Amino acid sequence: MHRQRSYSRAAEQLGLTQPAVSAQIRQLELALGQPLFNYAGKTLHTLPAADTLAHSAREIFGQLSRLEMNLSDINGKISGELNIAAVSSAQYVVPYLLARFRAHYPEVHVRLKVCNRRQAPRATHGTAG
């Protein structure tokens, strides 16, 4: 929602209906005791609470990923998540490289996003969107 700047686009990405996303946001706002978003006309604006929440959520998920990697290290296996952004010209080579990587490290979940050069530096931060 925060990245999408749209209830409808967030719903589409999550595989939910727009009213379901709106209801979840309302419940979250009630739990936090303050609004997260504001509509001005048809434009959705994030409020400071939404920015703070998004930042904290990224930190929490980052900590969980690090914990998972540390626990994997203790067990002597490599697992976790690998997010890769590749420019469109590399889309024909990268799958072959990833197949070899996956054969060696089957416990690693790989996400590949094909994008243009301008999008690549920010494409792996929160990819799934």
Results as ranks from 00 to 15, higher is better:
F37I: 04
P121F: 05
R66D: 12
S89A: 11
A103N: 15
H45R: 10
S8R: 06
Y7A: 02
Q34R: 12
H104V: 04
P95N: 08
R111S: 02
N38V: 07
P121T: 01
L64E: 04
V114D: 04
T17E: 08
S6G: 03
E81M: 05
E81Q: 11
F61P: 02
A120L: 02
A103P: 07
V94A: 01
L47M: 09
L112N: 00
N75Y: 11
E68C: 09
A99S: 15
Y96N: 11
L97F: 14
R26A: 06
K42M: 12
G62H: 03
L97P: 08
V94E: 00
K42A: 10
T46P: 07
Y39C: 04
R5S: 10
G41M: 08
S88L: 15
L67H: 14
Q91H: 07
K42Y: 11
R9Y: 02
P35M: 15
P19N: 03
F37Q: 03
A20Q: 12
V114I: 15
L36P: 00
E81A: 04
A86Y: 01
I60P: 02
V114E: 09
E29V: 05
S56L: 14
N75W: 02
I74C: 11
F37G: 02
G80C: 03
A86G: 05
G80K: 00
N116Y: 08
E81C: 06
A85C: 04
Q34M: 11
I25S: 03
I60Q: 13
A50W: 00
L97R: 15
L112H: 00
P35R: 15
P48V: 05
L64Q: 05
Q27P: 02
T127S: 07
L98W: 00
A103K: 15
G80E: 00
F61M: 12
R118Q: 14
Q91K: 09
S56Q: 13
A54F: 04
L32E: 02
G33K: 07
I84L: 11
Y105S: 01
D51P: 03
A90M: 10
S72P: 05
P35T: 12
Q13D: 07
Q91R: 13
A23F: 07
L28Y: 06
Q24P: 01
S79K: 08
R102K: 13
A11N: 04
R66T: 06
H109L: 07
R26H: 08
S88P: 03
A23I: 06
Q91L: 05
R26G: 03
P95K: 07
S65C: 13
I74T: 15
T52S: 07
R3M: 05
E12S: 08
R26L: 04
F61Q: 10
H45P: 03
L67N: 14
S22N: 05
A57G: 08
T43F: 12
L64W: 07
H2M: 10
